[in-house]
Structure formats: structure tokens, C-alpha cells
């Protein structure tokens, strides 16, 4: 199985994603250049984290119009799996692949820490290797991660089981839903209507080895492998 990892000017997690796929998952990965119209026959596309186009105008607003994204959008519309992490999530929202938007953190600060995430559904191609309600430790690192959508959209996401991860616990009260960035309803990750595009602010590719402090993120890659090669 081949993962195509898009490199935009300003991407900085493309190599992390590459290492996670090649070294930990043992599958093929290739970098896709933002100026090309070529997905190299990838089975899965990863939109990695970073600061594409310097976050000018709005995070993800300009990357969404880059040449390779027109192919990625076509790939996603045909049902191809897309894993959109951090800046990738912002780009996917701007591109209309996912509903809502990611705004400046409520604290106005960049947050960089390990958070706890709860798996809200295992009925997706990205989480089938986990148990429902499982809690993962995964890092976040972003300034614009406040998931925002209107109430009707949020109700629809919840009603259709498309909220995949929620931030869990927080300083002072471990049982309360909490978000480190002010996300509505503590949403950390969602899937699109068809279930083939996952957007998430946390970085599973940075949690794939005990040396990194956690290997809880590897299950997302394993879940995709299990589903795509099935």
C-alpha cells in the first residue's frame, strides 16, 4: 500500500508522516509536490501539518488552490482515503472536503503539548483498530485549532457519528470535556459525509514509538492499512 504525502511550501510534518508509514507501518510512502498534478498512484493521501504558504490570509486558504490539491479533491470525491492532520485539517476545511473551520485558539496562544483524546467511534476506516472509548495520548502543536461550525452542522456531525476524536479531561477536572484551543463541543477530529476523509488537529504521526513518548497514534495508520488492503 502506498501513502502519498503532500509537501506544500511550509509543510513541516511531511517527514514525520513518511517515517511513521515507512519505519513503523512498513509500507511505501512517496512525497507529492504541491505544484504537480500527479498523485503517483497513491492508495492514500496524507495532508501533513505545517504552515503552508506561511498561513497567509488564513491557515490553509492558499494551499487549497495549489495544483496538487485539485487532484486530491478529485481523489477524495471518488472515495479515496485522505488523512488530513493539523494544517492538513485546515486545508481540507478550506477546500470544502470537511465542514466547518479552524480559528485562532481562544487563548490566542500557540499550544504545544501532549493531550488525551477519546475515540468516539471505531466505525471508520481510520479507527477500526481501536476500542470505542479508548483514550490516546497524542501531541498537539497549533495556533489555529478552534474547531468552529454552526449548530446545525455540529448536530449533524454528532447525529451521524462523524465526531471521531474529542479532547478529554483538562487541568483540574479530568472528567469534563475540555479543549486546549476552544474547539466547539471539544471536537478534535471529524470525518466527511462519505467517511473517507479524516481531519484532526492532533498529530498521530508524532506518536508512533515509545521513544516519542507515545505510540498511540500508530493505530490510525494500521486501521487504514487494514481497511484499504482488505
Amino acid at each position: 500500500m502506498k501513502f502519498g504525502i503532500v509537501t506544500f511550501p511550509g509543510s513541516n510534518c511531511d517527514y514525520d508522516a513518511y517515517q511513521a508509514v515507512v519505519e513503523k507501518l512498513g509500507e511505501d510512502a512517496t512525497f507529492l509536490w504541491h505544484k504537480d498534478h500527479d498523485l503517483h498512484e497513491s492508495d492514500v493521501i496524507v495532508l501533513p501539518g505545517g504552515f503552508s504558504y506561511g498561513d497567509y490570509l488564513r491557515a490553509g486558504a492558499i494551499a487549497r488552490f495549489s495544483p496538487v490539491m485539485q487532484d486530491v479533491i478529485g481523489f477524495a470525491k471518488r472515495g479515496g482515503p485522505v488523512l488530513a492532520i493539523c494544517n492538513g485539517f485546515q486545508i481540507a476545511c478550506e477546500a470544502g472536503l470537511l465542514p466547518g473551520a479552524l480559528l485562532r485558539n481562544t487563548s490566542l496562544k500557540f499550544v504545544c503539548e501532549t493531550v488525551r483524546l477519546r475515540i468516539e467511534t471505531t466505525d471508520t476506516m481510520f479507527t477500526n483498530r481501536y476500542e470505542r472509548g479508548a483514550v490516546l495520548r497524542v501531541p498537539i502543536a497549533h495556533g489555529d485549532g478552534r474547531y468552529t461550525a454552526d449548530d446545525a452542522t455540529l448536530d449533524k456531525l454528532e447525529g451521524e457519528g462523524r465526531v471521531v476524536f474529542r479532547y478529554l479531561g483538562g487541568p483540574g477536572d479530568a472528567d469534563e470535556w475540555w479543549s486546549p484551543n476552544g474547539s466547539m463541543r471539544s471536537i478534535a477530529g471529524i470525518v466527511n459525509d462519505a467517511g473517507n476523509v479524516l481531519g484532526m488537529m492532533p498529530h498521530p504521526e508524532r506518536a508512533v514509538d515509545p521513544l516519542l513518548g507515545s505510540e498511540d497514534g500508530l493505530g490510525i495508520f494500521e486501521s487504514m492499512l487494514a481497511r484499504v488492503t482488505a
Binding site: 486558504a61 492558499i62 473551520a101 468552529t148
Partner: peptide
């Protein structure tokens, strides 16, 4: 199309 985000 670009300058404003229609969602927010």
C-alpha cells in the same frame, strides 16, 4: 472564493 471564509 478566497479572501473571506464563508463559514466564519
Amino acid at each position: 472564493r478566497l479572501l473571506a471564509n464563508p463559514v466564519t
